[in-house]
Simulated assay, not measured.
Amino acid sequence: MPRQHKSLPRLFVDHPLSVDGQLKLDKAQSNYLVNVLRLKKGGEVILFNGQDGAFRASLVHDSKKAAELALHDRTSTQTLPSKIDYIFAPIKTARLDFMVQKATEMGVNALRPVQTQHTQMARINYDRMQANAIEAAEQCEILNVPEVHEATTLEKLIANWDETDPDRILIFADEETDVANAAEALQPYTDHQVAVLIGPEGGFSEAERTLLRAQKFCVPISLGPRILRADTAAIVALTLVQSNIGDLR
């Protein structure tokens, strides 16, 4: 996709957007535009909210506490949401930041933490996760910011799998699977809604692996002959899914 207005800063806002509209920013975003980006009156920015597309806007009131923007033309129509959710066992903060950013760049629709028997991080900073997703979307001209969900356990995730979409599948990275060819394993699911599950650093327990393999909607795939860290495994798995049954085909 060609980049639009790549010289202009991009800002995610949680407000409705429309041509010729006006928008007053909160204190934090006003400070960011005026103090950090040093945007002057008349300076332009691209706004998006994950629903209405992207809009070119100019600064009409450059207060550091309550900046105001005037919206002009729509520069991009809203893209459709991805068919891929990303489910993961939480990891340490710095690497979790990286993983969230890369998953956003890879086009996931939702970020869903899941607690497993070997999960080492019990506390999750959801605001930080959302901020990292927004930052990645701003930098990469992504119009759909993935939604961050509350953590659940693997058992509850399986028990409450989406019954409204019986064709939705859960693709999970399993280092012990006999299915060596991930592309071949994924091909039957080109038209399905999918979720990608990456386990903790220590891998799934045998009981969890047995539980996953027992589900009709679960598809195990191999990520190759090497042992990967969780954040690396996320990139590899999402690349395999996007390139075989997603929007990188």
Rank of each mutant, 00 (worst) to 15 (best):
R3M: 07
H5K: 14
H5W: 13
S7D: 12
L8F: 14
P9F: 05
R10K: 09
L11W: 07
L11Q: 09
F12K: 08
P16M: 08
G21E: 13
L25P: 07
L25R: 07
S30G: 04
V36E: 07
R38G: 09
R38P: 12
R38S: 10
G42V: 12
E44P: 06
L47G: 06
F48D: 08
G50H: 01
Q51S: 15
G53P: 04
A57R: 14
L59M: 02
V60M: 06
H61N: 14
S63A: 00
H72S: 15
R74M: 12
R74C: 13
T75V: 15
P81T: 08
I87V: 03
A89C: 13
I91T: 01
A94N: 15
A94E: 15
R95K: 11
D97I: 00
F98T: 06
E105H: 06
N109H: 14
N109I: 04
T116Y: 09
H118I: 03
M121N: 10
N125A: 01
Y126R: 05
D127K: 14
R128Y: 11
R128Q: 11
N132F: 08
I134Y: 05
C140A: 15
E141D: 13
N144L: 00
V145F: 01
E147F: 04
V148M: 08
K156L: 14
W161F: 02
W161T: 03
W161L: 03
W161K: 03
E163M: 09
E163F: 05
T164P: 02
D165S: 01
R168T: 05
I169A: 00
F172Q: 06
F172S: 07
A173F: 07
A173W: 08
A173C: 14
D174H: 10
T177I: 09
A180Q: 13
N181G: 08
A185L: 09
A185V: 09
A185S: 15
P188R: 07
T190Y: 12
T190F: 13
V194F: 01
P200E: 10
P200Y: 14
A207F: 12
L212R: 10
A214M: 10
G224Y: 05
P225T: 03
A230E: 07
A233M: 05
A234W: 03
V236K: 10
A237Q: 10
L238H: 00
T239V: 09
G246E: 02
R249A: 00
R249K: 02
R249N: 00
